[in-house]
Design a protein around this nucleic acid. Structure first.
Lengths: 113, 113
DNA sequence: TCTATATTTCGAAACATGTCGAAATATAAT
DNA sequence: ATTATATTTCGACATGTTTCGAAATATAGA
């Protein structure tokens, strides 16, 4: 894990910053809802849901939720796409893999360099 | 990963908050310097070094470094113990395992509950 | 005890973040 | 066109963070 350079440090600190707020971590945890009990962990098994659905879980103002989603999106952790009246959010599985690899200590496997 | 409760969310958001600052992430990455290239990843292979050594790497005021170390320590990510004039810092490998498991999505394996 | 080295605490300045409500925008249905 | 629903942008406020230098504390050695 010590072989990461400044570029990696900046990238991952941005990612961890996005996950450093309880509301945002809850959103991200909901969206990357793979690995339910009794299931093999499978990163393709990612859920998606619209902004309103997330709002029902969180008890914060819609404007605050929107702000947090933008932060998660800026960090590359989630994708958002409009579908009619709603905006569908989903976890970005590539980044989830990058994070896993970061904590395993293998910088050379990252998809960006 | 969706089976984490509020307690987990609060705990991990605190951890990610500690890693959300580039200087702190650099410190933590230095301290959890396992898995050098050509080496099998082995979390027992954790380095330790004193505050002054870390300061030589970072180009920030000593008081700032001290503040960051306190943050990492508060989050449980590192241990600090005085040895004579120096204070020795080391990564906490249990927490590193918890983080790995968080991103693997297995809440039931955590050492605290 | 006096001095040198290592680290922390304190206080202050600059900056960033989380939150809200109100207003704006986007889309679909009537 | 008007209305209803979903989401975002804006402006503001309170709070938290990062950083520093100066002063304080801890330890070891002369």
């Amino acid at each position: 894990m010590s072989k990461y350079n400044q570029h990696h440090i900046d990238r991952f600190s941005t990612i961890f910053n996005a996950l450093s707020n309880p509301h945002r971590l809850q959103i991200y945890t909901l969206l990357s809802g793979c690995c339910t009990p009794g299931t093999d962990c499978n990163i393709d098994n990612i859920t998606s849901c619209c902004v309103g659905d997330l709002g029902s879980e969180l008890d914060i103002a819609a404007s605050t939720l929107s702000h947090h989603l933008k932060e998660l999106s800026r960090a590359g952790l989630i994708n958002m796409q409009r579908d009619g009246k709603q905006v569908i959010c989903s976890a970005n599985s590539e980044i989830l893999n990058d994070i896993r690899q970061y904590f395993q200590g293998n910088p050379e496997v990252h998809h960006e360099s």
